[in-house]
Simulated assay, not measured.
Amino acid sequence: MKQFASFLGAFSYEFRMQIRRPALWITMTIIIILILASTGRSTFLVSYAQHVNKQSAASALVVWMDFLSILLPIGIGLMMADRLYRDRKTQVEELFTSLPNALSSRLLGKYLGGLGAAALPLFTIYMLGVLYILFQTSDWLVLPQAVAVFALVSLPGLLFISAFSLACPRVIWVPLYQFLFVGYWFWGNLLHNPQIPSLSYTLLTPIGDNLSRAFFPGRDQLFISSNPTPLVNGFISLGLLVGLAALVLIVLVALMKWQQAQQ
């Protein structure tokens, strides 16, 4: 019971700290402006809005989720990168260390609280699009389908990148990690050149296009592949993304305990 209370306390504290950061909203706003400033994406968005009522609700939701997942997760990864560093800088970590509660429960609360707040701008924009689709289709099944699309297409990748963004800056200078993370995002998710080795279109791609093709087959997606991912690969990708996120957190807990023991 004490561990659960520790988790809730860390979750609430981290969520409130993250959601109040001007940098979160400024970063997301800049990314949205970049998306709208891109002629190709702006044209796609206008065309999508004009023809949304001519396709199924599930197809429209998947296209909308895929579109938002192109760049907005970058902001989430950047915002998660300095959370532990900030604790050390403000000496909050020493305060937490002196408490009797388990490090793992506090860290899990920090991870999920920070992710929840950092993902709120993305989820808000997504839900605005969901309401537009609901208005155009008059299909109330859009709402539960929207939750399913977000949970299956976007959330696994967000868990994956947030775990690394929380853990890696523990051993890497935060600005350096943020620079490398932005480079990784374009290399590992958006690189379409077959001559350059990349994680794009693999089971470890957190952008969500493989998951959308697997769990919503037959839908018109933003990313088209000649070899649609079968359902079994979708479950494998889901397991890898979530499993690796959990593994990274376990390693982070062990690392922090070791560092505390050395002090």
Rank of each mutant, 00 (worst) to 15 (best):
L72R: 02
A5G: 08
L68V: 01
S225N: 13
F4G: 04
S59F: 01
A119D: 01
D87S: 04
T29W: 06
L199G: 07
V232R: 09
M28I: 04
S237E: 12
L34C: 14
S104F: 08
M1W: 08
K89P: 00
F150I: 02
V174G: 03
Y48F: 15
L211Q: 15
L155G: 00
E94I: 06
V142T: 08
D66V: 01
L68R: 00
R16N: 14
L238Y: 15
S198Q: 07
L211R: 06
M28G: 08
Y48E: 12
P73A: 02
M256R: 14
G75L: 03
A246I: 14
L45N: 05
Q260C: 03
F150R: 01
L180S: 12
Y85L: 07
G234F: 00
G129P: 01
A5K: 12
I19E: 05
W258S: 08
I26C: 10
N101R: 08
L78W: 12
G243V: 04
F164A: 15
A81C: 10
P194K: 09
G183A: 11
V142D: 00
Q136Y: 04
G9H: 12
M1K: 07
S42K: 06
Y111N: 05
R16V: 07
Q262S: 11
Y184N: 06
F223T: 11
I250P: 09
R106W: 06
S105F: 10
V130A: 01
L143P: 03
A58C: 08
L120D: 05
P121N: 05
S12E: 13
